[in-house]
Design a protein around this nucleic acid. Structure first.
Lengths: 358, 358
DNA sequence: GAAAACCCTGCACACGTGTGCATTGGAGGA
DNA sequence: TCCTCCAATGCACACGTGTGCAGGGTTTTC
């Protein structure tokens, strides 16, 4: 590497990739020092417009692209954010990431993506990698945020924004859906339709969000003076498969619920299937409400009534909070965005249950 | 920035983030030069094991993390790959990206993500950004690969791997699904079930993959001596909405098809809905076959018969091709991975159509 | 007309790491 | 004892960009 220049005059060794054009190449061609070029390209007012124009022109001709690497070294700002997700294959996560990415690019930041797969070892690797890359900030979109995870990130002394999670700490901020209010709304919707035996199909891994959504469910019951029945609460794992299992348990009850509020759409998908398999119909026999409003929710049969999380928007917001922090400004510790109940066809008024009614 | 060190003795200005520990800090503490530390951490055989151990220990104590930025500048290798996708919200794309990410991380590479939204202007920005970041290579997972897009990327003189696309060029390689064989298989499956009026519901934006899938469809018809009927070919746009529209056109025919082979699962989802809305049933009245095997394909009603694309695997492969190229080895220009027909419940033998048959 | 003020420009160093080459110190052989 | 050789280490420069400060030239001012 060192002394490479010595071999450079008349470089016939075009075999390897040629060194990209640097600020010095531009400087040479413009008959100025590299400092002047640097300043000209930054629109530094020290450089008269005319000179700057000329330099920019030459830079353009040469196809000059400033090295973000060198700039990062000089300024110790990489204009890069690390983005940890459990898995990008999760459609909720993908939606959020889309929003983050857009906001980042719009502000000249690049996004380094890393999947943790909720695996502590991978999480360690990710943190290490982000530390080495000297990312300016970190956004975490993960259902599970390991106990030792955020502290490790904090050691990087870099701002962190969590999406749909909270973790008290000096460097952490968060953007969350208003779980309690949204699930209150969803449950209340079922109550207004006339349901009284309403189940909650939760997520045993959902931690905080599961707790909060369950809380909204209970509040709605309480407010309507509907007694809370523990047997109507079951738990899946956030996947359709978990929904199938849990729904099976509800159907096995002597007196099954007439409506089910699900932790998320994936779970609802499984519940829907399980109900179908048992020969019952949605919403005729059982009403179903999901959470997330994934893209597919409008294409299930029947289309799923659910709570919309503005995923893209939440991603954008998270990035904007981070940008504010990077810029040195303050920002709210926690931003709560409201969910929106999207009424489709999977929830309707209950039919009378007694089979010998006619 | 310059001369900052002058102010450093007894740095009481802990207000700003402290400079992370560098190789020199380790060197000082170990009473060696920074060169020795550098070599020790690289397991350079010049350094005796004992010394290396000691240095590694000290580095650990200090929480030293080598700066990938500085290393990138020195070696002109960033161990970073740029990843362009139309949108990460597309579940097919997300699956591929997952595989890429895993393979990248397993080999010490980081992934910089960029959404192009199939927008030429965004594509320009992405290329510019990748060029400035000095990524070592690029992977493109986009249904549409703009005409001027790959040439622009090529100017970076960096290896490029395309997923499900091809673009002849000095720097491009690709990983593709064997469209023709797979769609032959899918169509043939319908034929073997007894169908003769089989429609193809394509994607007018799918370019190469649409052409190839259509090709497999035609070959299967030809081989079975089923005449090709142009009116049984309609086009959506790869989305459920497009599927709904196109399926509507098929249903409006005097003699609608008994089976439909769809360009992808999203399209099939729309077709399924359209069929349902018109009061017909799948597969009793119309059989449906998709392409992709998205996660949701197993949870539609009925579960969708489709062609599985090993998305994760394809991502992994693309990254491995790229790694090989980065390492200076050769690699096949085009890798074709086979699709796999996944038989579920949306395709079955046709019922007799004549209503006065009994 | 000379001094002062101002506008540009370049020098030189910094950022953190890698590496070719020189140097040092010690061991081994004659 | 001296020379040779090798192992271990350090010096110095490179990578590309940013920036404080000094210096040179021109204009302004008295």
């Amino acid at each position: 590497m060192a002394h490479r220049r010595l071999a450079e005059p008349t470089p016939c060794n075009r075999v390897q990739a040629p060194r990209p054009v640097s600020i010095k190449d531009v400087a040479r061609k413009a008959n100025v020092s590299h400092s002047t070029v640097s300043r000209a390209l930054q629109n530094n007012p020290l450089i008269p417009r005319e000179t700057a124009e000329k330099i920019r022109l030459i830079a353009g001709e040469l196809g000059y692209r400033a090295s973000a690497v060198a700039r990062g070294l000089a300024t110790s700002k990489t204009r890069t954010v690390g983005l940890v997700v459990t898995t990008i294959a999760d459609p909720f996560v993908a939606g959020v990431v889309g929003g983050i990415e857009d906001a980042a690019n719009a502000n000249g930041y690049s996004v380094v993506l890393a999947n943790s797969h909720a695996d502590p070892e991978r999480e360690m690797m990710v943190v290490r990698s982000f530390a080495e890359r000297r990312v300016d900030g970190v956004i975490v979109t993960a259902s599970r945020v390991g106990a030792l995870y955020v502290p490790m990130l904090s050691r990087m002394r870099v701002p962190i924004v969590l999406v749909n999670n909270q973790h008290p700490g000096e460097f952490t901020h968060s953007v969350m859906i208003a779980n309690l209010e949204a699930s209150f709304q969803a449950t209340d919707h079922l109550i207004h339709l006339g349901h009284r035996r309403i189940a909650y199909l939760g997520d045993r891994h959902g931690h905080q969000s599961d707790t909060e959504r369950f809380g909204g469910y209970r509040q709605a019951l309480d407010q309507a003076d509907i007694p809370f029945l523990p047997e109507l609460v079951v738990h899946g794992d956030g996947t359709p498969e978990g929904g199938i299992q849990a729904m099976g348990r509800l159907l096995a009850l002597a007196d099954p619920p007439t409506a089910v509020f699900c932790y998320n759409d994936m779970t609802a998908l499984g519940a829907l299937r399980r109900i179908r398999v048992s020969g019952l119909r949605v919403p005729d026999d059982i009403s179903l409400v999901g959470f997330d409003d994934l893209y597919i929710a409008q294409y299930t049969d029947p289309p799923l009534t659910t709570v919309r999380q503005p995923k893209r928007e939440m991603g954008r917001l998270a990035m904007e909070v981070l940008l504010r922090l990077l810029q040195g400004s303050q920002s709210e510790r926690t931003i709560r965005v409201p969910g929106e109940l999207v009424g489709r066809e999977s929830a309707a008024a209950p039919k009378e249950r007694q089979p010998c009614n006619y």
